[in-house]
Design a protein around this nucleic acid. Structure first.
Lengths: 206, 206
DNA sequence: CTATGCTTCAAACGCTCGTTTGAGCGCCTG
DNA sequence: CAGGCGCTCAAACGAGCGTTTGAAGCATAG
């Protein structure tokens, strides 16, 4: 299963991501991680210094590119002479969902790690996420504000907050309702569609 | 801080709830719990048998009454000769949010534990939650279906799923956006208002 | 007063955790 | 070929984990 030509560092990151998603940061041990990655236990502390640093690197690897993609998508939208709420929402939602269905590069597990990060109250981790995720959110808030000039700014933040939460949960597929006859891929595509429609309606409500 | 006239069992449950909320189920140790509750370490295994059983009891204590309140509120709504989407949503949302602002009985911490339960992938815990939480959700789904006869059932489940995620998220106040000049209480009240409005708009979208 | 049964206690059990160590490996450079 | 360097390895460290134990406390019932 593990292709040996990938570097030790990368194999550790991949295994850590998958195990953090399944068992949480406290619940997944370095022994599990290194066993799954087929590397020596000491390799984690050699390459990352500590478990906490490993956790941060798991986030940095994905969040950097997610933020880039989101902001690039937002730029494309804003370059049009006219654009809708759905366009901006799409720029926010689709990169995240495409990451989540990127089986080849293993991004699928990361969205679950992300959802877990929301639940974990670890202040240090929350600061890390705020630093990486907050600035992008601010740009989106500005774009939404332009499209909804009559919406109070506090109110807008409220609604964006709710959307972020809904998106995170939908991405991680934490729903308790069983779905039949729908593939994982179709599931993701429908997710984007429904989330955008739902969020747009909620944002437009006066 | 700890009032000694409460029973050992109750003090353990209270402390466990608070610490599980802050540090997670794996992250909070029984030594932390018993120290915070001012009871002997062995008391947990004496009264609850195991840590896992303690976790289950933390949930049962709150979920039973939450389900009762939700279903009673739904009955009240359905007893009216006419009722709206907002009424049904209110029956679902308000008991949860009122639990979350019930400072006196300590329910405030439980909503964070609940959000954590979504994030934890523990199958045994998820089964427990499904058994306690699922049946109530089904009754609500039926009520929604009656109000939205043209909405495909699969589509309805999709949207309810999104709402549950958003609600959980909002309740636990996991948002990264700082709010100024708003008290915790006002925060909660606005939460219900916004969630209901938002969800109703999303559900009505065709 | 003694005996019974529930509760609490300090101490220890075996185990797993994150981290550290120092020897040893392979590979490039001089 | 010798030396240095990046990396991997098995082994051990102390600490903390959940759980178990058996004695001690302490009410109530006989």
């Amino acid at each position: 299963m593990n292709i040996p030509h990938f570097s030790t560092k990368q194999r550790i990151l991949d295994s850590a991501e998958a195990l953090f998603a399944r068992h949480g940061f406290a619940g997944a041990s370095l022994r599990q991680v290194t066993a799954s990655a087929n590397v020596n236990l000491a390799a984690v502390n050699y390459h990352f210094g500590s478990k906490e640093n490993l956790i941060n690197e798991v986030f940095r690897r994905r969040l950097d590119s997610l933020n880039d993609q989101r902001l690039r998508a937002l730029d494309v939208v804003q370059a049009q002479k006219e654009f809708t709420l759905e366009d901006v929402l799409g720029a926010f939602v689709r990169p995240a969902l495409s990451l989540s269905q990127d089986q080849h590069q293993g991004g699928a597990g990361f969205v679950r790690v992300l959802a877990r990060a929301y639940a974990e109250h670890n202040e240090q981790l929350r600061k890390f996420l705020h630093d990486n995720y907050g600035p992008a959110l601010k740009q989106f808030a500005a774009a939404f504000a332009k499209l909804l000039p009559n919406l109070d700014k506090q109110e807008l933040y409220w609604r964006l907050d709710i959307i972020s939460g809904a998106l995170t949960y939908a991405m991680a597929d934490f729903g308790m309702i069983k779905r039949r006859g729908v593939s994982e891929q179709q599931h993701r595509e429908l997710s984007a569609e429904h989330l955008i429609k739902f969020a747009a309606a909620g944002l437009r409500t006066s």
